[in-house]
């Protein structure tokens, strides 16, 4: 005879439990982990390059590079002489807390202050998987259009900071900065927004100062 078994359970419980574990381990080791999420090509790696360049001398930075395949992003960061662990998802469109937990085992966490996770380029899937980070950093570039917060509310509502990159390209796009800000203000009114050009360096200082300040306050 057919019977119904009530379950009422979060399907991603296993991911959440592991993320909670990661979060308490990082708290214990006093390492701040930032989950960097954007579309492919928005400038995550360039942002990390500039950040390592500017803060590498004062802050002990590590990076987890999530990529579907290749270690090209990691190669770009090698010159900063920081510990880097590559996770190739082999087709997977996001990182999960189990792969982060494994990657953390390859770092000496006692020698780190700040750990960036460069997630797989994708605005939907990575938002769904808590990695145990201190906060999510959403990166969007002017070339992608100003409608991203409205179209991907999950990421932008949960982000602890937002970076609008490639502001040097504004004259060549139809990106409406005011519309972008207005959408973001509705979705996440208090989120800090940094307008930068990672390639040229415009606006970077505000981001760097803010990031440095977070290390002392998170």
């Amino acid at each position: 005879m057919t019977m119904e078994i009530r379950i009422m359970k979060n399907i991603l419980d296993r991911n959440q439990n592991k993320a909670d574990e990661v979060r308490s381990l990082l708290a214990e080791k006093n390492v701040k982990m930032v989950n960097v999420i954007s579309s492919p090509g928005a400038g995550k790696t360039t942002l990390l390059e500039r950040t390592c360049e500017a803060l590498g001398g004062k802050i002990r930075i590590g990076v987890i590079e999530g990529d579907v395949t290749t270690d090209r992003d990691a190669q770009r960061l090698k010159k900063y002489d920081i510990p880097i662990v590559v996770i190739n998802t082999e087709g997977g469109c996001h990182l999960d807390s189990h792969s982060i937990s494994k990657a953390l085992g390859m770092f000496d966490l006692d020698t780190l202050d700040l750990l960036f996770v460069e997630n797989v380029g994708n605005l939907i899937c990575p938002s769904e998987f808590d990695l145990g980070e201190a906060f999510k950093l959403a990166v969007v570039s002017t070339a992608e259009g100003d409608d991203k917060p409205a179209k991907y509310p999950r990421l932008f509502s949960e982000a602890g900071a937002v970076i609008l990159n490639k502001t040097d390209l504004l004259p060549y796009t139809n990106f409406n900065t005011e519309a972008f800000k207005a959408d973001l203000a509705v979705i996440n009114p208090d989120v800090p927004l940094f307008n930068i050009s990672a390639t040229r360096g415009d606006g970077l200082q505000a981001w760097l100062d803010w990031m440095e300040k977070q290390l002392n306050s998170l």
Binding site: T2, I7, K9, I11, R154
Partner: peptide, 20 residues
């Protein structure tokens, strides 16, 4: 007001299974 919170919309639940 902009001071708002999500009540429903983030669910990802298995409610039940049926079988024999």
């Amino acid at each position: 007001a902009l001071d708002i919170t999500v009540v429903h919309g983030k669910e990802l639940f298995i409610k039940s299974i049926e079988g024999e």
